[in-house]
Simulated assay, not measured.
Amino acid sequence: MENFFSILGGMGTMATESFVRLINHRIIAHKDQDYLNYVLFNHATVPDRTAYILDHTVDSPLPFLLDDIEKQNLLKPNFIVLTCNTAHYFFDAIQGATDITVLHMPREAAKKLKQTNPDGGKVAFLGTEGSVKAGIYQSEMENQGFDVLIPDKELQTKVNNLIYRDVKENDYINTNLYLEILSDVFDGLGCQNVILGCTELSLVQENIGENPYPVIDAQSVLADRTIELALENRSSK
């Protein structure tokens, strides 16, 4: 297969399935050959990213991710898509292990945020505790001129429950809790926007229907950027 990209996913698997579904549904296709060429690495057994970020005595995901990159180097895709937000904690090491461009989801999301909110403002970041501690999204958002709100313990507990208890453990799309979290952020804390920086949150957002609140879904942004770059590569061949 030529002219393809690779997806480094499986963290988690249902969220990766959501990403693949997005790119398949958003491409304009009238026949099989109109869809995109890609290879999916659904590496479900990568150790938990947040667990390592919070406690470096547990197994590190990095050797597993670097092994995946080594295998993708052999395949020589046009670019690599890393679908796990928290795994971007290791982004520099991952990109350093390959000459192939790895898309940076937090950076793409922050750029989109700036496009839709050119005057800046107060924006909340919702993600895993690992992503919060890593500070990757905060840095990208602040570089774009935004005031970043990080959830307090009570709000982060709600986010954790939605990600881990509901989606990861029970495959339950808890839209009521999701909307409660957004109400806390917008109505209670006065934010103008929010970035969803966890693919489990993106999965809930995908199933919400019409959302009464403006959100920047990082996975959705990444899907659009993936399609854009894949089509550019296709047309240049």
Rank of each mutant, 00 (worst) to 15 (best):
E2S: 14
N3Y: 01
N3L: 06
I7S: 01
I7L: 11
M14W: 01
M14I: 12
S18I: 07
F19E: 03
R21I: 01
R21A: 14
L22N: 07
H25W: 00
H25Q: 13
I28V: 15
A29V: 10
Q33C: 10
N37R: 13
Y38K: 06
V39M: 10
L40K: 02
F41K: 06
N42M: 11
V46A: 04
A51I: 10
Y52A: 13
I53G: 07
H56S: 13
D59E: 15
D59N: 09
S60T: 08
P63S: 12
L66R: 01
D67H: 12
D68N: 15
I69N: 10
Q72G: 02
L75Q: 02
P77N: 06
F79H: 03
A87Q: 03
H88S: 08
F90M: 05
D92F: 04
A93R: 08
I94L: 15
I94K: 00
A97L: 05
A97S: 14
T98D: 01
T98F: 11
I100S: 11
I100P: 13
T101G: 00
V102H: 02
L103I: 12
R107E: 14
A110W: 01
K111Q: 13
K111C: 08
K112T: 15
L113S: 05
Q115R: 12
P118I: 13
P118Y: 09
P118E: 07
G120T: 06
K122A: 10
L126G: 02
E129Y: 07
G130W: 11
V132K: 14
G135D: 05
G135W: 10
Y137R: 11
E140H: 08
N143K: 15
Q144V: 11
F146C: 09
F146A: 06
D147L: 02
Q156H: 08
V159T: 11
N161Q: 14
N170T: 12
N170Q: 15
Y172R: 05
N176G: 00
L177Q: 12
Y178A: 11
Y178F: 15
L179P: 00
L179I: 08
L179W: 00
L189V: 02
E200D: 09
L201T: 05
L201K: 01
S202E: 05
Q205G: 09
E206D: 15
E206K: 14
I208Q: 07
Y213T: 04
P214I: 13
V215C: 11
A218R: 00
A218H: 03
A218T: 04
S220N: 03
R225T: 12
A230R: 03
L231F: 05
S235M: 07
